[in-house]
Simulated scan of single mutants.
Amino acid sequence: MDARASAPLFWIRDASVVRAGRTILHVGDFSLSEGEHVALLGPNGAGKSTFIQLLTREVFPLWREEPPVRFRGQERPLLSEIKGALGIVSSTMHDQVRVHLPVEDIVVGGLFGTLGVPLHAEVGGAHRERARAALDRLGIVGLAGRDVMTLSTGQVRRVLVARELVRDPRVLIFDEPCTGLDPEGMYHVRQTMGALASEGRSIVLVTHYPEDIIPPIARVLLVKDGEVFADGPKADLLTSEVMSDLFDVPLVAAEQDGWYSLRGSYA
Rank of each mutant, 00 (worst) to 15 (best):
A3Q: 06
A5V: 14
S6R: 14
R13A: 14
D14G: 03
S16D: 15
V17Y: 11
R19T: 10
R19N: 02
V27Y: 04
S31E: 14
S31K: 03
S33N: 10
V38C: 08
A39R: 02
G42N: 00
G45E: 09
A46N: 02
G47C: 09
L54C: 14
E58K: 12
E66K: 11
P67W: 09
R70C: 12
L78F: 12
S80A: 13
G87P: 09
T92R: 09
Q96S: 14
R98N: 10
L101S: 06
L101G: 00
V108Y: 01
L111Q: 14
G116P: 03
H120Q: 13
A121W: 08
E122N: 10
V123R: 10
V123L: 04
G124A: 13
R128M: 11
R128D: 09
R130H: 00
R137Y: 03
L143D: 07
D147S: 09
V148D: 05
M149P: 01
L151F: 10
S152G: 13
T153F: 02
G154K: 07
G154V: 07
E164L: 02
E164R: 00
L165R: 03
I173F: 10
I173S: 07
F174H: 01
F174M: 07
D175I: 14
C178K: 02
P183K: 03
G185I: 04
R190A: 06
T192N: 08
A195L: 15
S198H: 12
S202C: 07
I203W: 08
V206Y: 00
T207I: 05
P210S: 08
I214N: 05
I214Y: 04
I214H: 05
P216F: 12
V220L: 02
V223Q: 05
A230L: 10
D231V: 00
D231Q: 04
D231S: 09
P233D: 05
D236Q: 15
L237M: 07
M243N: 04
F247G: 01
D248R: 15
D248K: 05
L251Y: 08
D257M: 10
Y260F: 15
G264R: 04
